[in-house]
């Protein structure tokens, strides 16, 4: 269980999160929605301990990680796997080495075993043909898929964190990525997906959290979201009405 208790966070003088309290189970499929600069990505970074809250507590599996040191945070971080907005692939390594990165660090697998595992993972996300390409040679959609593949290399993560996984992708690729995220969540591992696209969130998530001005404006299920009469949320919902919610 991930628990935020009265979390406040600011980048310098700019307040990003204001008294945010929430709980998310590791098995849940959650979408964090909101406009740009509303603190969505900040929530993911706080969960991973990449940044620390100014006040308040973040409790993961009963452990308060708020003031943990870098070395103490490693065990907590291994419970998660994140796909950053731009993929964050290591640009000096090819696709194979990116996916094999954790296997080389944490397992004693032979080169043949690593090759087989990498090919299997890449095939499962539909980019096995990209094995020997460098990150700069990948399209936006392939980049995200390889990043997701890398996050699958180890079995240790209990939850996936996706930071704007469909931003910058064409509708077909965005739909494919959403399908992949939904497929991966079928094995009981939950996810938190940060996005400003309600249509994508509706395709994959069961629970929706809406941030506005750094505060929690809405926390509910699909039905409650679509029937909300809050004007800020309605603006986002209207986007779905115009585009047509394939998953709604």
């Amino acid at each position: 269980m991930i628990r935020f208790e009265e979390v406040n966070f600011a980048y310098g003088a700019r307040s990003v999160l204001r008294s945010v309290s929430l709980s998310v189970g590791f098995h849940e499929r959650v979408a964090v929605l909101g406009g740009s600069g509303e603190g969505k990505t900040t929530i993911l970074k706080l969960i991973l301990g990449l940044i620390r809250p100014d006040t308040g507590s973040i409790i993961i599996d009963g452990d308060d990680i708020t003031r943990r040191s870098e070395s103490e945070l490693r065990e907590t971080r291994m419970k998660f796997s994140i796909v950053f907005q731009e993929g964050a692939l290591f640009d000096s390594l090819d696709v194979k080495e990116n996916v094999a990165f954790c296997l080389r660090e944490y397992t004693d697998m032979s080169e043949d075993e690593i090759n087989a595992r990498v090919r299997h993972i890449l095939a499962s996300v539909g980019v096995e043909q990209a094995l020997e390409l460098m990150p700069e040679e990948l399209s936006g959609g392939m980049h995200r898929r390889v990043s997701i593949a890398r996050s699958l290399a180890l079995d240790t993560p209990r939850m996936f964190l996706y930071d704007e996984p469909t931003t910058g992708l064409d509708p077909v690729n965005a739909d494919n990525i959403c399908g992949l995220i939904a497929e991966l969540s079928k094995n009981g591992k939950g996810f938190i997906m940060v996005t400003h696209k309600v249509s994508d969130a509706l395709k994959v998530a069961d629970r929706f959290i809406f941030l506005r001005n750094g505060s929690l404006l809405f926390d509910g299920n699909r039905h409650e979201l679509l029937n909300s009469d809050h004007p800020d949320i309605m603006i986002f919902i209207n986007e779905v009405c115009i585009q047509g919610p394939s998953g709604a």
């Binding site: 991973l48 990449l50 490693r74 065990e75 971080r77 994140i82 950053f84 964050a88 990165f101 660090e105």
Partner: peptide, 8 residues
Amino acid sequence: DTIRVFGL
């Protein structure tokens, strides 16, 4: 950040 998230 990715390296840190990988526990390294």
